[in-house]
Design a protein around this nucleic acid. Structure first.
Lengths: 217, 217
DNA sequence: AACAATTGGATAGTAAAACTATCGAGCATC
DNA sequence: GATGCTCGATAGTTTTACTATCCAATTGTT
């Protein structure tokens, strides 16, 4: 199919598709001549993935690029490919190792992960991300202990082990594996986030003994 | 304290503080003369809250503004104040009620909430948000059923009921209640999100029988 | 073969969000 | 009364994600 058809089928405007091609999010089509290229279902699929990560996951284009690069780097085995994708998904946080609060929080995070027996690399950026949340909670006057975080951690593990992970075809083609992992992480992550807010909405109304609150307007 | 001290204590540059003042995120200081205003601990605290929501929660300034407006609107009782804050926290999604996939997904979401017996307003924007995630999952070839979502929903409810909600002082001053709610929703939400990704990282390494994957570099 | 339409590739422009910088006049303080 | 901080207003910057415009090269269409 040509670019115009790709555009109508996906709902993404042609200039935007060209932009994604430039940015390396979408692979080039099969060039049949100097001014013609042929696209197929894989491009359509990729385009849908890009839009999902952008619109639902609110991932920056640069992050999506990193994930795609990991898939297309043939030197990586499945394990390292997934790892790279994983680390790309964490929002970069610059650590403040000299800060006292930061150090304390980081120790808490490391101890938590160690006590849980989780296999996470000591330098994984995810650790910094969690540290930042813990530091911030403390600064806001809601200090967090390991016991506070533990139930969240075990709940997270339960969900991942029983649901997310079972969906990932580790033995299938590599691109399918990463794609599924990313989708699980981003879209089910989003779904859970919304469900959490729904639950909070419902519980808070229940406690206050009131009827559900309508949106403004 | 003066604006310069507010700046050094919070680490936020003066022009940025002025910007927050202009945008109504930070209340004006106590004006002692035409060119002097006095700020206090409450301003410092608010500033920290703003930065937390911006940096950790990645909330847009406009959203933070909405939450603050809800707190300061004296006509609202605690219930409606929390509700307004709640709805402000959901990323706006424009619904596509004419779309077939959308309709189907929306029915699934409504049925799920009804079956769970959750008290959520029929027009709550949160419903649209979840609908969007469900539609997107379907488009990406991972259709979601009510049974798929149920375990996420019950896990979310457990966390909220046993942890988040217990932290909110419903009978205390109104501003403390919303602030706690927002902090719980945004920061513990973030913490859980990171824990989920950590669990996924760990489980995926375990399944592949590999050692934890180092970050690039 | 003439010719309008489409494409690819390049380049430049735009919109929104979150700052950041500058300026001028008014105090305050030494 | 010189120095320096402050307020308030206004204008400029940076980043991100597009969007628009050109142009020459086709392609299909007559």
């Amino acid at each position: 199919m040509r670019i115009s058809q790709l555009s109508t089928e996906s709902g993404v405007p042609i200039p935007t598709i060209k932009y994604y091609l430039r940015e390396g999010l979408l692979p080039q089509g099969d060039q049949t001549s100097a001014t013609r290229a042929e696209y197929d279902q894989s491009h359509l699929h990729r385009l849908r993935l890009i839009r999902a990560l952008l619109e639902v996951g609110r991932l920056p284009v640069a992050t999506i690029r990193k994930v795609i690069d990991a898939v297309e780097d043939e030197r990586l085995d499945v394990h390292h490919m997934l790892g790279t994708a994983h680390h790309a998904l964490s929002t970069p946080v610059e650590p403040h190792p000299e800060d006292e609060d930061w150090q304390e929080a980081r120790e808490l995070v490391d101890r938590l992960i160690a006590d849980l027996g989780w296999g996470v690399h000591p330098l994984a950026p995810t650790r910094d991300e969690l540290t930042q949340a813990v530091v911030t909670l403390k600064r806001l006057g809601m200090p967090t202990s390991q016991e506070d975080l533990l139930p969240y951690a075990t709940a997270a593990l339960d969900l991942v082990r029983d649901l997310d992970i079972t969906k990932i075809p580790f033995d299938g083609p590599r691109d399918v594996a990463v794609e599924t992992l990313v989708i699980c992480e981003v879209l089910y992550g989003k779904a859970f986030d919304v469900l959490r807010r729904l639950a909070q909405e419902s519980e808070s109304a229940r406690i206050l003994g009131a009827t559900p609150c309508p949106p403004e307007g």
